Amino acid sequence: MRVLLVEDEPDLRAIIGSGLREAGFFVDQAGDWPTADELLARNAYACVVLDRLLPHGDSLDELQDRRRRGWSLPVLCLTALHTLDDRLAGFESGADDYLVKPFALPELVMRVRSLARRAQQRTPVFLRCADLELDLARREVRRAGVLLSLSPKELAVLHHLLAGTDRVVTKGELFSHCWDEFAEPSSNVVEAVVAGLRRKLGGPPLIHTVWGQGFRLTEAPAR
């Protein structure tokens, strides 16, 4: 799952970003709303972690305006403003959760995970193709009933391919959804992960290369 972190204090931004990545999230980072908007226009996120006080002012004003225009992305608001009135203002402005600084990183991770799960409520708990099954809640993959050991990156790529079963998924799409902004877009990074997935999934093959386009996950023979 991909998370956007909007925090203007560099050291705290680095700590939060590192903690979320260690918990298995893909994290993009911004220090202000203009940068955040550029990332929001390019990527799909499960959740936004939003510092309340940014260089352009109180984020609640911006958040409230976006909610009025139909913006529905889950938002966890971070702030040093801790009174009851401050917290109520956060929820009234459209925050889904509100965490006061200083906070414990494990609690932040737990809250982000909860919000991200809500954002994926429309996604089936199980994704299947032939005898391959992905349990999203447990983050477990089985082929013919056998539990497979996948890396977080392999799991993310497989999830995206399964969600798009029977359609061609481009390398650019996989990179955009499964790597964060700090990844180096080397020419073969996607192919390397897909190759590892193929080895672990075994036969008969389910991931097929569509030359010049990308990959298709399907139980049908390659075309």
Rank of each mutant, 00 (worst) to 15 (best):
L73C: 07
C77I: 08
L81E: 08
L81I: 03
H82L: 00
F91K: 06
S93L: 01
G94Y: 00
G94H: 02
A95H: 06
Y98E: 01
Y98L: 00
L99R: 04
L99P: 03
V100M: 00
K101I: 00
A104W: 06
E107T: 05
M110K: 08
M110Q: 13
R111D: 14
V112L: 00
V112E: 02
V112C: 04
V112A: 06
L115C: 05
L115G: 03
A116P: 06
A116G: 04
R117T: 12
R118Q: 14
A119W: 04
Q121M: 09
Q121G: 07
R122C: 07
P124D: 12
P124H: 09
P124Q: 11
V125C: 09
V125P: 10
F126R: 15
R128M: 13
R128C: 11
R128F: 08
A130K: 12
A130P: 03
L132W: 12
E133G: 09
L134V: 06
L136A: 09
A137C: 07
R138L: 13
R139A: 15
V141R: 14
R142F: 09
R142N: 07
R143D: 15
A144L: 07
G145V: 08
G145S: 09
L147Y: 11
L147K: 15
L147M: 14
L148Q: 13
S149M: 11
P152Y: 09
P152T: 08
